[in-house]
Each structure stands twice: as C-alpha cells, then as structure tokens.
Deep mutational scan, measured.
Amino acid sequence: KPRVVLAPEEKEALKRAYQQKPYPSPKTIEDLATQLNLKTSTVINWFHNYRSRIRR
C-alpha cells in the first residue's frame, strides 16, 4: 500500500485531538476521520504510531 502523507493542518488537528484524549473512542475516531476527510484506519494508525513515538 502507498504511504499516506498528511497535510500540516491534518497533523495539527490530530495532535490537538491527542492532547485532549490519547485513547479516543471509536465515535471520536469516526468524527475526526470524517472531519479531516481521512479513512478511519488512517486515524487509528496515526494515534497508535504517535503514542509509540511519544513513549520513546
């Protein structure tokens, strides 16, 4: 699969959402995906990867 490249404003929106709730509910994930015009799997993976990046 080709890698999804996020626009800077999409990254900022995801980071703001992460600061509010690092483990978002499925509803929140769905809303974010719709709002940013991304797949839910992309949003889920971003949160998973961002949490692991923060832990390093």
Rank of each mutant, 00 (worst) to 15 (best):
S41D: 12
E10T: 14
Q19C: 06
R3T: 06
S25L: 13
P22T: 04
Y23M: 14
P22V: 04
E9F: 02
R51D: 01
V43G: 00
L6F: 03
P22L: 02
D31T: 07
P8T: 12
N45S: 04
A13Y: 03
K39I: 09
P8M: 08
H48S: 12
Y23F: 08
Q19E: 14
N37L: 00
R53V: 09
R3Y: 11
S52N: 12
K1S: 04
Q20K: 13
K15V: 11
R16P: 05
Q19P: 04
T40C: 12
P8H: 01
I29Y: 15
D31M: 11
T42H: 02
N45Y: 00
S41T: 11
K39F: 09
P8F: 08
Q19S: 11
K15N: 05
R16H: 12
V43E: 00
N49T: 07
P22N: 03
E9K: 13
S52E: 14
F47S: 01
R16E: 09
P24E: 05
L36A: 02
L14V: 04
V43K: 05
T34W: 06
K21R: 09
Y23W: 04
S52M: 13
S25D: 15
K11C: 08
N49W: 08
T40D: 03
Y23I: 07
T34P: 00
K1T: 03
Q19K: 11
V43A: 01
P26H: 05
V4P: 07
R56P: 08
L6G: 07
F47E: 00
T28P: 07
P8D: 00
R55E: 13
T42E: 09
T40P: 10
N49P: 00
T40H: 04
Q35F: 03
A33P: 03
L36D: 01
Q19M: 15
V43R: 01
N45K: 05
Y50C: 09
Y50L: 14
E10L: 11
S52I: 07
K11G: 04
R53E: 13
T34I: 04
Q35I: 15
L36P: 05
R51E: 00
K39G: 06
K39L: 09
K15Q: 02
E30L: 10
T40G: 06
R55L: 02
N49K: 10
W46R: 00
L14K: 09
R3P: 05
F47A: 04
S41N: 08
S41H: 09
K27Y: 04
K21P: 00
R55Q: 09
I29E: 00
K39W: 13
N37E: 01
K15Y: 05
L14C: 00
E30D: 04
R55A: 11
I29D: 01
V43S: 00
W46Y: 04
Y50W: 15
K11E: 15
R55Y: 05
W46S: 00
N37A: 11
P24W: 05
A33R: 13
R55N: 10
T28A: 12
Y23Q: 13
R3W: 06
V43F: 05
E30Q: 12
T42A: 14
W46A: 00
V5D: 11
V5W: 04
H48T: 08
F47T: 00
I44L: 04
L14G: 05
S41R: 13
T42R: 13
V4K: 05
R53Q: 12
S41V: 07
P22K: 08
R55P: 06
K15L: 10
V43T: 00
A13C: 11
K39V: 08
A7C: 14
P22I: 08
L14R: 07
I44N: 15
E10F: 05
P8E: 08
T28K: 11
R55I: 13
R56D: 06
L36C: 01
R55F: 06
I44P: 01
Y18E: 09
F47V: 02
A13W: 04
V5Q: 11
K1D: 15
L38V: 05
N37D: 04
S41I: 03
